[in-house]
Amino acid sequence: MEKLDILMSIFLIIIFLFIFLPIVYMLTHPGNLGVLLDNEVIDAFKTTLLAGTVATLIALIFGIPTGYILARYDFKFKNFVEAVFDLPMAIPHSVIGILILSFIYGVSVIKFIGNYVVDNFFGIVIVYLFVGIPFMVNSIRDGFLSVDEEIEYVSRTLGASKVRTFFEISLPLIRNNIISGVILSFARGISEVGALLIIAYYPKTVPVLILERFMDFGLNASQPISVAMIIVSIALFAMLRAFRKHKVKNTG
């Protein structure tokens, strides 16, 4: 290794430890894990994972056709549409809460929805969907972009209708993109706090509960739940990386 490369490696090591050490410390000092058996904690986990699942399913149902159209067609304002789909990633989380709430209470026709959203399970789903959809759409669009259109054409000439080609040829080919879209949008959803504080503090999700315990009882009280949350996140990303690796092997 040359000197410059050694120097650059040192930068890598420092920034790696910056992220890695706190995680390791946390995992090795979880505090009183008995807290995890609290009903409130268990309910929070149920709420979080269920809302995450529902939001991800909705994102998937909308993400597949959206991603397909974005990948296959050029249309006026396509750039604009794509930019709008990316926006939730750039807007501050609390602003997302204010945004959704203002819209619901501001437009009189849909005001009634407020009852089902504010401090309600569906409010959590809406927030999760809002923040998670960019990951789903982008991942699926990239998947369809990577499927050679000639493959779809050939399938058509072999006698498969457009619908059949879509379900039998194109969709199976982007399986890994669908999986990573699901994991990313799920992971993004369940980590959300800011918008939930504004729209749906209740029923409490795990990150909201962690924040609440921290505010009320301090660091020690929030640590064990945080550790559990870290483990969920690590598990999700381990799955993601496993699928990505699989994909590289497939296409290489």
Binding site: I151, V154, R156, A160, S161
Partner: peptide
């Protein structure tokens, strides 16, 4: 007619085999 009703054999430049 749509391609599936024409009964033509088509071999594109990159062959476009179904990779899966």
């Amino acid at each position: 007619l749509p391609p599936e009703k024409r009964n033509v054999g088509y071999v594109p430049q990159n062959y476009a085999l179904f990779p899966n």
